[in-house]
Design a protein around this nucleic acid. Structure first.
Lengths: 233, 233
DNA sequence: CGCAGGCTTGATGCTAATCAATCGACGTGG
DNA sequence: CCACGTCGATTGATTAGCATCAAGCCTGCG
């Protein structure tokens, strides 16, 4: 059961389904709305390439970024399981998404249990990331928060092969970082400057380099286990 | 598909399975560890009665409560899907739990798709609650956080029929509230006192009463949709 | 009686928010 | 080519919100 990830596309039906998925591709430019808050009947996507984020906001405009989606992550599971999306999602870079039509969801459970299992696995995975984010925002200092965010994203990106030469294309603005961490823009800027001058990381031209991820993680009080092999798509 | 919640126990197999579940009941006293952080191979439970909470902590002792589990909620989905629990769970009151053995998980997906679907639905639901908590901790003021926590718990408890005469048995200490909201104990105490004197709620002898849940929600900037009907067990 | 757990209260200080500019890079239209 | 607007990053000054420290106060309990 543990190695199910290895031999996935099995059933005839699954193969066919995955085929149709390939056709149901869509591309959106950076900044585009993927899911609109309050939207009814949103679809389920998996991110094929590019970055996106999920967020919620209060009536007066305060915004909290909930999680960052990298390739392979699901977007819109809640939205497609419930009537209404309870959050928004926006593309950070140009993205390619695979559509999994919500009306097929139930039939996936009925006829493709392996696929359904993966779906649930991914949902649990994103819950784990949310847990960590909540710990970060609730209990870490500003400097730790930034280090923690960077360390976590770096690790996830690394597992996806997005890191070359210790550096990573990094599309978040300081405003995004602030919104993700529950900090103000100004304080984020100042704290980032301090961490940079400590040599924990470098960030320029939209590229993040971390020479010593261990030191980073230690500074951040960020001790997550290795990412286990994940189901694809 | 939307009303699946209504006619659930269908298959012969499901009925049998639910039967065996009833036997796999366990009781724990208030304060007991349900899931130990770092524990390997934790099981999956649903809370049958009582309250519990999930938490993470940093090496230096800072603790963040991630979510509060009420009757009907799942505990340990991540822990049973992954190798290792990434968080802990502790009983707030005496609790009764139903055990869903992790080794049966895969066969549930294979043979009881309706049940698997419910599992996923509940996972998505708890993700929605985490999203809201993250918004609370990241962007709301101390007073709003407290109001938001109380309003949210009150609403959930109400849906479960736990509220009588506008009051609710409330087993959280101020320390728990502080840990859930990313606040210090002292500040929590002072802010709660202020809200009480504003007449937003009353809390004494472990009982919470909210006369005007609307006003509470408004104060908290807490605007969640109604809870849709949920799958049971 | 002594102790522990939970709740309160006051004093003090730091962290991070807010306010207010400024600056550079970039793109656009006249 | 240059004036202009925009967007993101940066910096300094000030303030507010919350943390921390340090007692003290109940109540229940062995």
């Amino acid at each position: 059961m543990r190695k199910r990830n290895a031999f996935r596309p099995k059933t005839e039906e699954e193969v066919v389904f995955l085929e149709t998925l390939k056709s149901e591709h869509l591309r959106l430019p950076a900044g585009a709305d993927i899911i609109h808050p309050e939207q009814n009947g949103a679809e389920l996507y998996t991110v094929f390439s590019g970055w996106a984020f999920r967020y919620k906001e209060l009536p007066d405009g305060r915004r909290q970024i909930l999680s960052i989606a990298l390739p392979g992550d699901l977007l819109g599971l809640q939205a497609s399981l419930f009537e209404k999306a309870l959050y928004g999602a926006i593309a950070l870079t140009d993205v390619e998404l695979c559509l999994i039509p919500r009306r097929k969801l139930w039939s996936i459970f009925e006829r493709m249990p392996a696929f359904a299992y993966d779906l649930t696995w991914l949902a649990a995975q994103s819950e784990a990331i949310l847990d960590e984010n909540l710990l970060t925002v609730g209990r870490r200092s500003a400097a730790e928060r930034i280090a923690s965010l960077f360390a976590g994203l770096f690790k996830r990106a690394e597992a996806l092969g997005l890191v070359h030469d210790r550096t990573l294309v990094f599309p978040l603005t300081q405003q995004h970082v602030a919104d993700a961490l529950g900090l103000s823009l100004v304080h984020t800027n100042k704290t980032m400057a301090r961490l940079k001058s400590l040599g924990l990381f470098a960030l320029a031209d939209g590229k993040l380099t971390i020479d010593n991820p261990r030191a980073m993680a230690r500074f951040a009080q960020h001790f997550e286990k290795e990412l286990s092999p994940r189901p694809i798509l």
